[in-house]
Design a protein around this nucleic acid. Structure first.
Length: 378
RNA sequence: GCGGCAGUAGUUUAAUGGAAGAAUACAGGAUUGUGGCUCCUGUGAUGCGGGUUCGAUUCCCGUCUACCGCC
């Protein structure tokens, strides 16, 4: 299911295969929490080169609900996306006032914002949800502390995360053996463990050892890129990644920006997801090979060049910076569509260049050149 | 020409005899396992001239401008 194809230093390319779907690594997943990224449909996501996306199992189980997903043939068919679908557990929704009630040993107590009911999401329940949703890769339920939490709080969170990971793994294995549930068709679903530990290398190491001992299909670094300086992100990843087996995919959750992706790839990370490209696109922040620009600025009022001269996405082939600037100032939905298309396309193209440069043994040069271009600016 | 009414950021406006607030626009910044076409910061105003008052954007007079009505 995961195969490494080429390596340069710690960076590597490979293939992740699940349920007859595949994606080349390293890859970036746009976030489609409710079954759709904002201002771009699933077919265009795929066209742009997104061979994997991430939805949220917990949120989908509330709306449209598991019954709809079952009766319409599962998530792939429901949203008409035939790439690999990851589902997130709902752990991240702990930080939404809309959802969270409290967390206890058993699990996370949520309130359903649509129906007003109280829900207890346990690791077992979460596995059942993600199985029923029908994703290719499920994520463990974890306890994610915010940046700035005390070390004591983070210690507590890794113990809870490890305990829940055990319960997720056991229940998920049970499902695959036909126990625990009637779920049958999705028995090839992979399950990734999540390593927490905040910015503390010793806690990251402790958590990594414990999670890895449970033998998951892949390993994620969670609770990062949430406000901490980049050095802390990477010291946390490097403390943990040493203990993750080489032959398993590594996933840095929540990243993000081209710079962070480059650095993480060079440390041996294979998967990324983030709302950054789509969210910032709406706000006017656009990727180019010379760094990001804010199209809202007056500098672009009369600029008839494309967003990025080297990009051949639909937006860059057909529209000028001047026009996108105009649409952004007026907050036109069409502007959001065009900007989102560009950012998704651009980042997928960027990932492709990373993969190619690793295959050719030129990753270090690629990285260096990209970072130097940023300094030059436009 | 006479009468009425009103003049506050670029624009739409709030308030007050005692530090003139906001929205929008403009200018910066942020954005990272998405309740979000978002959030933060900054620049920017009492038409003009006089009077009363310790102090006037506020009250009074004149003037200019806009709008409404009348001849």
């Amino acid at each position: 299911m995961f195969e490494i194809k080429s390596k340069q230093g710690k960076a590597r390319t490979g293939k992740l295969r699940v349920n007859n779907r595949e994606v080349e690594t390293p890859f970036f997943m746009p976030v489609a929490t409710k079954g759709a990224a904002k201002f771009i449909d699933n077919l265009k996501l795929k066209e742009a080169g997104s061979n994997a996306i991430i939805c949220n199992g917990f949120i989908l189980s509330i709306k449209p609900g598991l019954k709809v997903l079952e009766k319409t043939g599962g998530i792939h068919s429901f949203i008409n996306y035939n790439g690999i679908i990851f589902t997130d557990s709902g752990g991240f929704q702990m930080y939404s006032d809309k959802f969270l009630e409290k967390t206890t040993k058993e699990g996370i107590h949520f309130k359903d914002p649509f129906h007003g009911e109280k829900l207890l999401i346990t690791p077992e329940k979460d596995m059942e949800i993600q199985q029923t949703v029908g994703s290719d890769v499920a994520m463990c339920l974890d306890d994610m502390p915010l940046y700035g939490s005390s070390k004591e709080r983070i210690q507590e969170s890794i113990l809870k995360t490890i305990d829940w990971a055990k319960r997720c793994k056991e229940y998920h294995d049970g499902i695959k053996k036909g126990k625990n549930t009637k779920a049958k068709e999705n028995n090839k679903q992979l399950l990734f463990g999540i390593i927490q530990g905040g910015i503390y290398p010793d806690l990251r190491e402790f958590c990594a050892r414990a999670i890895v001992s449970l033998n998951f299909d892949g390993y994620a670094f969670g609770g990062l890129a949430i406000g901490e300086p980049a050095e802390e992100t990477f010291s946390a990843v490097s403390a943990a990644i040493k203990f993750v087996p080489e032959d398993k995919p590594r996933y840095l959750m929540g990243v993000g920006t081209p710079e962070l992706i480059l650095e993480a790839v060079s440390m041996g990370v294979d998967c990324f997801d983030s709302r950054y490209p789509t969210m910032t696109a709406r706000n006017g922040t656009l990727f180019t090979n010379k760094g990001q620009i804010n199209i809202d600025k007056k500098d672009f009022e009369f600029d008839v060049s494309p967003i990025d001269k080297e990009c051949d996405c639909f937006t860059c082939k057909n529209f000028t910076r001047s026009y996108i600037h105009h649409l952004t100032r007026l907050k036109e939905p069409t502007g959001h569509i065009l900007k989102t298309i560009h950012n998704v396309f651009w980042i997928q193209n960027f990932m492709k260049s990373i993969r190619e440069s690793i295959k050719e043994g030129k990753f270090e040069e690629f990285k260096k050149e990209f970072l130097e271009n940023l300094k030059k600016k436009t």
